[in-house]
Computed example of a mutant assay.
Amino acid sequence: MNQHTDINEVRAFHARLMAVASGSRDHRLERIFESVPREAFLGAGPWKIMVNNRYVETPSVDPVYLYQNILVGLDPAKGINNGEPFLHARWIGAVAPKSGETIVHIGAGVGYYTAILSMLSLPDGSVHAFEIEASLARRALDTLKPFEGVTVIQGDATRLPLPSCDLIYVNAGVVSSPGPWLKALRVGGRIIFPWRPSQQLGAALMMTRTEAGFTVQFLGPAWFIPCVGASDPEGCVTPPSLSQVRTVRAAWLIEDKTPDDTAIAVCRDVWFSDRAG
């Protein structure tokens, strides 16, 4: 990189790209993406960047290398990374975090995207960040100190109680969303997660709670490391085909409604239909 490259200029341009990638008209996004420096969360460089399932080390500690649409290794030995910015921009645009909302972030890592979510929840909002890896949770506790309304919880979010919330943002692949997560959502609340109903499928879904059940939107392919506690292959009794995943429109908790002949996928706690609810 040119030694005269201005990191603030690079960060500002990256933030503009992120705002465009979000597909959102929320005027706050570009400013917030610019104000949260990615390098503050990733530790001292050089950093390991994943390309084609291999890690490549940056040639120096210049943070300009981080402002690309890249995965950056947090714990390369375990395949744990800080996720691709444009994917997260699209997700954030889709779930549209609002001021005053209560947000749960599952798989928070070192807290980079937690920080962005927390700023979008201001004023009067809060973020409960769950991270099962103790070393990453300790780092998140440190990096998130400057951010208001953030609580970091080290532990298994599939076993710990979730607060009543407006948004659940999941950064680990689940075979099926646990029932307690869905029941924690208030009416109008959203959950976005990487759905892994079978080894062959990886899809981003957004579910929005209604009075009767959930509307569901397919947001494209997504591949994340498995979520501890929610990645048992037996968790999806009847997985969908790739074409069926793209047609999902609604879902219900099995305890609330028995699967009917419109079901395209039946999981442990929830089932999915290609018919609007």
Rank of each mutant, 00 (worst) to 15 (best):
L167Q: 06
H4P: 00
G149D: 09
W223Q: 05
G277D: 14
V270S: 04
G188H: 03
I264M: 10
G23S: 08
G277Y: 08
A19M: 04
G235F: 07
A21H: 06
R90D: 00
D62I: 03
G125A: 06
D142P: 01
L117E: 08
A89T: 02
W91Y: 13
L42P: 03
D6I: 07
G188I: 00
V150Q: 00
I80H: 00
E133Q: 15
L205D: 02
N69M: 07
T210G: 01
A137T: 03
G43K: 10
V95G: 05
G188T: 02
C236K: 06
G23D: 10
D166L: 12
M1T: 12
F214D: 04
A89W: 04
T238H: 11
Q199H: 08
R196E: 14
K78A: 14
V175K: 05
P233Y: 12
C165R: 00
P46F: 11
I7K: 02
F130V: 04
A108I: 07
I192E: 09
P197N: 04
A115G: 05
Y112R: 01
D256E: 15
L253N: 05
A172W: 10
S22F: 11
Q244I: 09
F33W: 11
F86E: 01
T238D: 13
A137S: 10
A77T: 14
P197I: 02
E255Q: 14
I116L: 14
M1H: 11
